[in-house]
Design a protein around this nucleic acid. Sequence first.
DNA 1: TGAAATTCGATAAAATTTTATCGATAAATT
DNA 2: AATTTATCGATAAAATTTTATCGAATTTCA
Lengths: 226, 226
Amino acid sequence: MEVKEISQATLKRLPVYFTYLKSLSPQGPVHISATAIAAALDMGEVQVRKDLAAVSKAGRPKVGYVVSDLIRELAAFLGYNDVADAVIVGAGKLGRALLDYKGFSEYGLNIVAGFDIKESLEGETQGGKAIFGLPRFGDLCRRLNIRIGIITVPAESAQSVCDLMVENGIMAILNFAPVHLRVPEGILLQNENIAASLAALSNRLLERMNKEESRNEKIEPPFSEA
Amino acid sequence: MEVKEISQATLKRLPVYFTYLKSLSPQGPVHISATAIAAALDMGEVQVRKDLAAVSKAGRPKVGYVVSDLIRELAAFLGYNDVADAVIVGAGKLGRALLDYKGFSEYGLNIVAGFDIKESLEGETQGGKAIFGLPRFGDLCRRLNIRIGIITVPAESAQSVCDLMVENGIMAILNFAPVHLRVPEGILLQNENIAASLAALSNRLLERMNKEESRNEKIEPPFSEA
DNA sequence: TGAAATTCGATAAAATTTTATCGATAAATT
DNA sequence: AATTTATCGATAAAATTTTATCGAATTTCA
């Protein structure tokens, strides 16, 4: 076995490098160093180098990496080349926004269709993606061999939608509902709680503001005991 | 200083406990143990206990924690009690979905208004949230003392929107555009790349399928050399 | 051609995070 | 009342992740 374990943390950063490298002008320099990437992305250069070592062998001292090669290697490694199909259950505002989002193709993803329990939503989105009633879910997934499901229903119905997905061969689930879903062993689950992310940000902000306040107090006590 | 350092990792898990505890029926048991929470959330019980220790001192052996107390303590710690205002720039589908999303209030967040460069979008969302033209951004943020900004514009304009936010007193930014934004020191930035998240999931799935495939090959080689 | 400047890749050290262990405590049971 | 059981909180060990260090490679410049 010469398969090196690639860390979860690295895996999360690779798409960042990919996006950054893609944003560089094709007219720009052919090479780029880990040092330069690190500077642009506000990271440590050693970390960048280590991360890139996981996907590329082509770094040359003093020169760096060939940008286009790196992009290619990252895309290959991350599976952005072979297209994977996915479906969305929950055609509310978020669901429809994702259905019509164009950016997925950059990452080798193709949202096939949406489903919703509300019959009034059946039809298609502004962008032309089909929305079906939930009864057709199983049939369509099985026929097209869909393996990836996105849940954008309210918390109350998320677990039953999740179960439905699992029953119909979905192997990986991206869940936007703010609940912890129970899945059988072997099913991949990733949670994406937007409200919680935002709250965490707000939280960090508050903390920082408190810290600075108390620091100011220390420097200039209103009525010190001296 | 008796301020214990609270780890970044713990901070990310606290909202999960909060959401789970809130989902429990008020008619249910008064107490809950770290063991039970861990089982429900598929985590290690020691980790749960350690995380909870950061916000609560009230765990009793053999009994556990008082559910309602825990919820209260978590909410207080995470700042869900005092409401923070936020604005969104980019009133496309995602932006409008977030504007109308009801779930933020659970987390002490209030989305005040949306902004967009496209005049045709001015007016209000289905849910009744106002959408203004970008020129009014600075004025409104300063008058209402907004500190949190959400970016849902395309990658190309994200940096300039980010700059605009910083100029007008925004201290924390949640960025949905797939670009790395440069912010001055002291500004909090959190990136949320939905496409990349999904791709990561798809990636893990592929990897697992490959692994299983190769395992099967090992167990039953098509034409072994034996 | 030789010296200086960059940068890589690898290894080692430091920091962080997760997991295990164990005595103490409180309730339930005998 | 004593014993058993479940659970906490703390401490220690293990694992993971980040950061630092350093020799070797490669280009640039004198």
